[in-house]
């Protein structure tokens, strides 16, 4: 059995899955608003959403730590409810991941929603279907490719999380030691065998995910092409 740190891999997959799912639920309404609104604040909000793309992860981690720490209102609220602190815990890491991967989900969502034909939505309304139902029956299926892309990107991006996880998570085995931190640890300990195997696994699985995404995207874009 090759030396691989399975605990950190399972933890990282769990983190990526949770982050992607949360971003689907939280990101879609935000993306829908960004795609449709003409509110003057829109450019500012879009810039904020894009911040994690350009900010160094350590800067992001620093601010997240400030935001979630025991001195902050959010941190104190969490502590009174659960009795534990947000930093150095898995839920705290989830919050950091969601922020870190936010643009990777929201930007593809927004682009996909923008591309949906306005007239199709209007036609649905004129046919007596509510805005809510129209979203589920028309907008979402029409933007399926973008939604899937955003979800997968958020998942893959979280798999590689290092800087933010280190700042906010504290490298605690089985709780916040993500696979990239584990690899970093192995290299520091000069355990190149573990580092090598774990890295190869990460590389291989990321490639597979992206390959699968590309293969299925064709179907998502035009499933009807299979008929003719």
């Amino acid at each position: 059995m090759p030396p691989i740190d399975w605990t950190s891999i399972v933890l990282t997959i769990r983190l990526a899955l949770v982050t992607a799912l949360i971003l689907l639920v939280v990101g879609m309404p935000l993306a829908l608003w960004l795609a449709r609104t003409r509110h003057p604040l829109r450019p500012a909000i879009e810039a904020v959403v894009a911040l994690p793309l350009v900010l160094p992860p350590t800067v992001l981690g620093f601010y997240v730590l400030l935001m979630l720490g025991p001195a902050s209102p959010l941190g104190r609220f969490y502590e009174t409810i659960t009795g534990t602190l947000l930093p150095f815990s898995f839920p705290g890491l989830v919050v950091a991941s969601v922020l870190f991967s936010l643009p990777f989900a929201v930007q593809p969502f927004t682009a996909a929603f923008r591309a949906v034909s306005r007239e199709m939505e209007e036609a649905s309304w004129c046919l007596g279907v509510s805005h809510w139902s129209t979203f589920w029956r028309i907008t979402a299926p029409q933007s399926r490719a973008g939604i899937v892309a955003g979800g997968v990107l958020a998942f893959s991006h979280t798999l590689g999380e290092f800087g933010v996880a280190l700042m906010v998570g504290g490298n605690i085995a089985g709780v916040t030691r993500t696979v990239s931190i584990s690899i970093y640890d192995s290299v520091q300990a000069m355990d190149y065998a573990t580092a090598g195997w774990t890295s190869a696994l990460l590389l291989g699985s990321s490639f597979l995910i992206l390959l699968l995404l590309n293969l299925t995207q064709r179907n998502l874009h035009a499933p009807w092409l299979k008929r003719s």
Binding site: V18, L21, I22, F90
Partner: peptide, 24 residues
């Protein structure tokens, strides 16, 4: 509507995964 139920299930799964940790 199928899409919607999928999403609800996904969210439930997410919360379950995030919250319950065997180490907790």
């Amino acid at each position: 509507m199928k899409f919607f139920t999928c999403m609800l299930l996904g969210l439930a799964l997410a919360l379950a995964l995030a919250g319950c940790s065997p180490k907790k």
